[in-house]
Design a protein around this nucleic acid. Structure first.
Lengths: 344, 344
DNA sequence: TCAAAAACTGAAAACGTTTTCATAAAATTA
DNA sequence: TAATTTTATGAAAACGTTTTCAGTTTTTGA
């Protein structure tokens, strides 16, 4: 048996027919426009309710060139920081009548590219992106800007992309806070597990790290600096290297919490006492850092502020049909904060 | 300055014009239909590439009544189980050319209702739902079924809704496994922190719990059975009640991992030794349970299997334009498994 | 009371595709 | 070679809205 054809749905014409009105008037009534008599509007709304009418978003979008849908591309929704940002964005967009189309790139560049094609085809009204770790070419986003579709990067952002908006955490300060904190608690031999330098996050956090070390006149041991994908496996491997020689570190900065957790577990297994022998600090304030023992000191990134700010700017842009050029091109910076716990 | 009007985009007509073809032929060429000369197809594809043509999804969807978009409503994307299911669904749907529109109900019924309206308006080709904890009236899903749009419930599912597909974990067995395990490790005074009975999950897990207790001839102390929202606060409050009297439990089943974690932390703070004085078991195998000390025994739900199965069935339905009625109406059950750790 | 302005409504075009129907060209068959 | 089938293409309708333009009715102001 062939599937029941959908589309016995009532259209605007059915309402019009039932009330002996034109489609135009019904449309105006439903959209709360001026110049429609109060009684007419009520009649229309009542009839729409009665007929179970629901606007066909595609017809509406096709004609008016507005989808009321915002696209979002993110490496992975399961990362705590992103999950929080997304939830805030979605809840706030919803208040303004916008939907969010969430897509995951799985940190894969070709997937990211493909998703931009799909979202462009869907004619989203705006695009929000946290890039993959490896995105250095941003040309696949240009089509949106050329069509006047606002593009908002957060967290993992392009170095400079004219016409795009950027919001990110103060990672330089975050890196600085982390390293300074270790130094202040007495560490003098500090290692750093960071991510690939292709990504702004790790460039900035590293810069902050170096700046703190320099300020306190502590030499950086380059053998103890890792730039690698921040996986559990890599973190354990780094720990093995760090503790295989005679000289071992007494402090460890990691640029995400998963690495910090992996390092802590490695330490636990190999009898390295945290925080006595080794102090560890993470990044992101993932709830897991509060649960593990000892709880891990980390850097808060305020995902809710990030999400809220993105929506505020975007809605302003969309509702007022403003051009991005009117906005300052300077990136918006969200502050970072040290969360002290037992690991330091 | 008014925002640049988008829609300088090239359409199918521009391709047709450039090649002196009709729109119909271009459309056929782009969609890989038969009856178009190889050379013509190549010309079209080349010109589309050259002009940077991208199909307007709304026009296409309006005409063909297919959006290649599947809607998903979930309480919260940040819950581990759901994040995993969603990711699997998205990655697998993508392989078949479908997009996923992810929406969060925040466990709020009226939000859930509203989202069904929005997704219906968007004319999604199918709908996947994990209900709120409190959804007992499922009438807002009927519009989809009436229009022949497949609806797939998972995890939190309706008791019986003709025309809808259902996939869920074997929660009865899960509850049974948990309680049995506690009994087998020596517990005789077992408490149970469960969720609201309005939700199938907790009815089933409770049923499993009772069945294990009965089988081992252990009396259930009804004062130790909690049905409440599974929040940290509620779990702590339950622990307080459990340990305020003379008679205290030696085993605790919790119906999610957050409660297990909260209980464990409460125990740690109040000097209750886990697992010596109290054995704790969670539900879901949230990664946090493996990190905390002692690591918490829990029930694995295989989110990836759930996601994979949903897509398999859905794609079969969508591609072959089959009617749901052809499918067995029996719910699909995914097995559950005990994960033994240090807390028991 | 009359002219001008404002409010209300409808007809028809438009959005960019896909699809139906018709027709022309090419390939196949007898 | 003629008749038939298959292949290739185009014209035009259709999808369900929104919007423009024009026309009619009502209200306002003097």
């Amino acid at each position: 048996m062939i599937r029941k054809k959908r589309a016995q749905e009532n259209t605007i014409l059915d309402i019009a027919g039932a009330l002996k009105l034109s489609a135009a008037t019904v449309s105006r009534a439903l959209n709360g426009q001026v110049h429609v008599k109060e009684k007419t509007r009520n009649d229309v709304l009542k009839m729409a309710e009665k007929l179970g009418y629901r606007r066909n978003q595609m017809a509406s979008g096709l004609r008016s060139n507005k989808t009321y849908t915002v696209g979002l591309i993110v490496p992975r929704i399961s990362m705590f920081f992103h999950a929080e940002v997304i939830t805030t964005i979605q809840n706030n967009l919803h208040k303004h009548g916008y939907n969010l189309m969430i897509c995951q790139s799985n940190d894969d560049i070709s997937m990211e590219k493909e998703l931009t094609e799909i979202l462009f085809s869907s004619r989203v009204d705006a695009l929000i992106v946290a890039c993959t770790l490896f995105t250095t070419d941003f040309s696949h986003f240009l089509k949106f800007m050329e069509s006047g579709v606002p593009v908002f990067f957060y967290d993992r952002v392009p170095p400079h992309l004219p016409g795009a908006m950027v919001i990110r955490g103060d990672d330089i300060r975050g890196g600085y806070l982390a390293a300074s904190h270790l130094i202040e608690t007495g560490c003098r031999h500090i290692a750093h597990i960071s991510g690939p330098l292709s990504c702004n996050l790790y460039r900035d956090r590293s810069a902050g790290f170096y700046s703190a070390m320099e300020q306190h006149h502590i030499a950086v041991n380059e053998d103890w600096i890792f730039h690698q994908e921040l996986t559990t496996v890599n973190a354990r491997e780094a720990m093995r290297k760090l503790f295989e020689g005679k000289k071992v570190p007494d402090g460890l900065c990691t640029d995400n919490d998963s690495s910090a957790i992996a390092a802590l577990e490695y330490a636990r297994e190999t009898g390295i006492n945290v925080p006595k022998d080794l102090k560890i600090i993470g990044y992101s304030n993932d709830p897991r850092t509060a649960i593990i023992s000892p709880a891990i000191t980390t850097i808060e990134q305020f995902p809710n502020q990030v999400g809220k700010k993105i929506v505020d700017v975007l809605v302003d842009l969309l509702k007022n049909e403003k051009n991005i050029d009117e906005l300052s091109n300077a990136p918006i910076i969200i502050p970072t904060e040290l969360i002290r716990r037992m690991s330091t």
